[in-house]
């Protein structure tokens, strides 16, 4: 099962490599990873998605918790949550394609953020599934470049991941 794990950790040199190292060392895979400082500048928040059964996820969270730099973590997929990913995509947009792609962007509530005579840069925000669906809709033939931010997430309701 796909899981989204959000980790608060010390914003210190080496912290990130310990987290990433743990995954390769123990043979866990990382699907996506994002990390940035938080409102408290001594802390970074790292969000990663991984795939595994309950046993594996339990091991992953236990081992992450064992890292000295990890302050707190939560498996967002355990409860209601919001997940978002941002994608920028450069597509060929010439002739008849231009209108076609514009329509598709509208359907997915994306934005065209840059334009030349022959291409668009489109920005789409949403769940990873939605982003996948957009790519599918546009079709490989028109896609020149794709960049995705990786998943960020937050729990719904009162639950807060902080100190």
């Amino acid at each position: 099962m796909r899981r989204i794990i959000s980790v608060l950790m010390e914003n210190a040199p080496g912290s990130l490599s310990r987290v990433v190292g743990l995954f390769s060392q123990r043979g866990y895979n990382i699907e996506s990873l994002t990390v940035a400082p938080t409102e408290d500048e001594t802390l970074s928040r790292l969000t990663l998605t991984t795939i595994g059964d309950d046993h594996k996820i339990e091991q992953i969270t236990k081992h992450l918790n064992k890292l000295i730099d990890v302050v707190k973590l939560v498996d967002l997929t355990e409860g209601a949550h919001i997940e978002r990913e941002v994608m920028l995509i450069k597509v060929k947009a010439a002739g008849a394609q231009r209108a076609e792609i514009k329509r598709c962007v509208d359907i997915f509530r994306g934005q065209i953020v840059d334009v030349t005579a022959s291409l668009y840069i489109v920005q789409i925000t949403g769940t990873s599934d939605k982003l996948d669906a957009f790519l599918h809709a546009v079709g490989d033939a028109s896609i020149l470049e794709v960049v995705r931010s990786g998943v960020s997430g937050i729990a719904r309701g009162e639950k807060v991941l902080s100190l």
Binding site: S17, Q25, I68
Partner: peptide, 16 residues
């Protein structure tokens, strides 16, 4: 050294 020893230490420090 911090990198080489990473998987075999409980923790490591680099003094700055």
């Amino acid at each position: 050294m911090v990198g080489v020893s990473r998987p075999i230490v409980k923790h490591s420090f680099m003094v700055r």
